[in-house]
Every structure is written in structure tokens, then in C-alpha cells.
């Protein structure tokens, strides 16, 4: 673990944290433009966060230590996961730990914390949201793991850095399996981030909502933490998609300032492209009924399974 790698790691984490609210703002702005509105500035989420963090939080009478502790835990876990996903550079200090299953585990941890916070006060909406969130995750996780299976077969590892390196070399080439895995992962990403068509991030107090329902009783810095966590999660997923499917341009380890700048540029471009795609997609599609979501995620699961089977057949391993 060289100082350079540690520095890269710190820069990466800082960038992730800094860019996450911007990314959310960007998507909102893009969506507003697509709908013909002017939209708030992409900086608006940062402003909201700053304001929330300064406000005095209000806790319900029945709230326990969980309401206080879980936002920190959730954001910490998400940040840890975010630290593991390569952004502009590979070979960061934590690269040996950057395991896809661990990333899934850390996301599950933050999800669990969120659900605990939702249940803490004991309200109808909180419980409803928690139940739905965890249920959707039950379908999202297998799809995610099966997509991981495709990468594990192609790259021989579940380590993100190793996968990135293998793909950047162009070893696996273009495969139908990768396309299927991409579709599956996209569906999972939408569900995990509470985006359309699974959940609508722009609404409050609708019976069909999931994510927002869990946060109805939070306020002040706790709400800020939760908002930050959600933003970081979106950031993380887009970076993950970029790292897995668009591995070009990522700076190799210790490539100097020039390489870094190039990698940074590539990363921002990739994130921007994905944000545009997300905004277009969300503007074009309507939200599903809650109990259609399993079908949506089940289809993703089947796609990933199909991808794995194609791999077995095409690689002639059988």
C-alpha cells in the first residue's frame, strides 16, 4: 500500500462525496429540461444539504437510539462501498478489498440501517416503506449476484479492480452475455436507487412510494445524512456501471497527473452520459404498480441467468 495509492483513494472518496449531490441535481435539472421546465440548479442538492445540516433536528417521542445512529451507519457503509468502486483510477489503496459481493453486502447494511430507522418510530408509513424496500431487495440481490457471476466467469474474479483491468485490456470482447448482464444490472440499479419505474424519487405522501416513506419522521442533520446517502448510492451505482461496462479511459494505477486528469475526464463524461440516459429514461416511463416490481426484477434475474448460461455455452467450457 503505497502513499500514492492511499492518496488516490482519498481523492476518489472525496470526489465521490462531492459529486454525488451534484449528480442528483444534474439528473433533476435534466429531467426538468426534458419536461420543458427550467429546473433548479444542479447545485441545489448541496444547498439543501447544507441547510438541513444546520437545522435543529426533531425526534419523535418514541424514537430510540436507532434514529440517531442509523443515518451515520448507513452513510458510512455506503461511503465505504463507494470507496471501493473505481472511479477515475484503478489500483487504489483499497483495491484488494474491492469485492463485488462486499459492495453488495455494504449496500445491504445501509439498506438494513435505513429500514431500522424507518421502523424506529413506529408509524404506518415507515413500516410500509421498510417492508417494501426489503422485499424489493430480495429480488434485486439475486439478479445482481448472477450478473456478478457473468463477470466472475469472464474475468476470473469478483474483484472490481481485477475485472476492470481485465476488461480494459479488451480481453473478454463484446458478448451477448455482457449485454444481458448490463440490462439486469440496470434494472437492479433502478430498483436499488428508488428510481422510476420502481419508485418515484420526486414524490411525497403517495401510497406507492417506498424510499421517501421511510424518511418521513427524520429531520435536520439526520435527514441530511439520509439524503446524502441516497445521492451517494446513485453515484456509486453509476460509477459501478461505468467501471464494469465502460472501462475505457480509467487511469491505471500510479499513472501520474496526466493520466489522472484523463481518467477524471473520462469518468465525468461517463457519469454525465449515464445521468442523461437516466433522465431520458425516467421522463419517458411511468411508475409501475408496487406488485409489478417483482416481475420487473424477476425479468432482470432471468436475463442475468440467461447471460450466465450463454457464457457457459459460448466459452465452450461445458
Amino acid at each position: 500500500m503505497t502513499p500514492g495509492a492511499i492518496f488516490t483513494q482519498l481523492v476518489h472518496l472525496a470526489l465521490m462525496l462531492a459529486l454525488a449531490p451534484l449528480l442528483v441535481g444534474l439528473v433533476r435539472w435534466l429531467k426538468a429540461r426534458l419536461m420543458g421546465r427550467r429546473g433548479p440548479s444542479p447545485l441545489q442538492p448541496w444547498r439543501d444539504l447544507a441547510k438541513l445540516a444546520r437545522k435543529q433536528p426533531l425526534l419523535a417521542e418514541s424514537a430510540s437510539v436507532m434514529s440517531v445512529a442509523t443515518p451515520y451507519l448507513a452513510l458510512a457503509a455506503t461511503s465505504a462501498a463507494a470507496a471501493l468502486v473505481p472511479g477515475f483510477a484503478r489500483g487504489m489503496a483499497l483495491a484488494p478489498m474491492a469485492d463485488l459481493i462486499l459492495v453488495a453486502g455494504l449496500l445491504a447494511l445501509s439498506r438494513f440501517a435505513l429500514a431500522l430507522a424507518a421502523m424506529d418510530v413506529g408509524t404506518a408509513f415507515g413500516d410500509l416503506g421498510a417492508a417494501r424496500e426489503m422485499s424489493f431487495a430480495a429480488f434485486a440481490e439475486p439478479a445482481f449476484i448472477l450478473s456478478v457471476l457473468c463477470f466472475a466467469i469472464l474475468a476470473g474474479s469478483t474483484n472490481l479492480d481485477a475485472i476492470g483491468a481485465a476488461f480494459a485490456d479488451g480481453g473478454p470482447g463484446l458478448r451477448i452475455s455482457l449485454l444481458l448482464a448490463l440490462l439486469a444490472l440496470l434494472a437492479v440499479a433502478l430498483a436499488e436507487n428508488g428510481r422510476m419505474p420502481v419508485d418515484n424519487p420526486a414524490t411525497h405522501l403517495e401510497l406507492t412510494m417506498v424510499h421517501e416513506a421511510m424518511l418521513l419522521e427524520t429531520s435536520g442533520r439526520y435527514l441530511a445524512l439520509w439524503e446524502m446517502q441516497a445521492a451517494l448510492r446513485l453515484m456509486l451505482w453509476l460509477s459501478l456501471l461505468a467501471a464494469l461496462f465502460l472501462p475505457f479511459g480509467t487511469a491505471p494505477a500510479f499513472s501520474g497527473l496526466g493520466g489522472w486528469l484523463l481518467g477524471l475526464l473520462a469518468w465525468v463524461v461517463k457519469l454525465g452520459a449515464l445521468a442523461v440516459a437516466l433522465a431520458v429514461f425516467e421522463s419517458a416511463i411511468a411508475k409501475m404498480r408496487v406488485f409489478r416490481v417483482p416481475e420487473f426484477l424477476g425479468a432482470a434475474l432471468l436475463l442475468a441467468l440467461l447471460g450466465a448460461v450463454f457464457l457457459f455455452l459460448s466459452t465452450g467450457l461445458a
Binding site: 444546520r54 419523535a60 417521542e61 424514537a63 408509524t123 408509513f125 419522521e217 435536520g220
Partner: peptide
């Protein structure tokens, strides 16, 4: 950033 301790209030509970 945020100095004030949390205040306690009744549960909002979706407006019940």
C-alpha cells in the same frame, strides 16, 4: 456543522 441537540416532539405518523 450542526450544534443543536435534537428536540423531541410527538410522532407525526403521516398525519394520523
Amino acid at each position: 456543522l450542526s450544534l443543536q441537540p435534537a428536540a423531541r416532539g410527538p410522532v407525526w405518523d403521516g398525519g394520523f
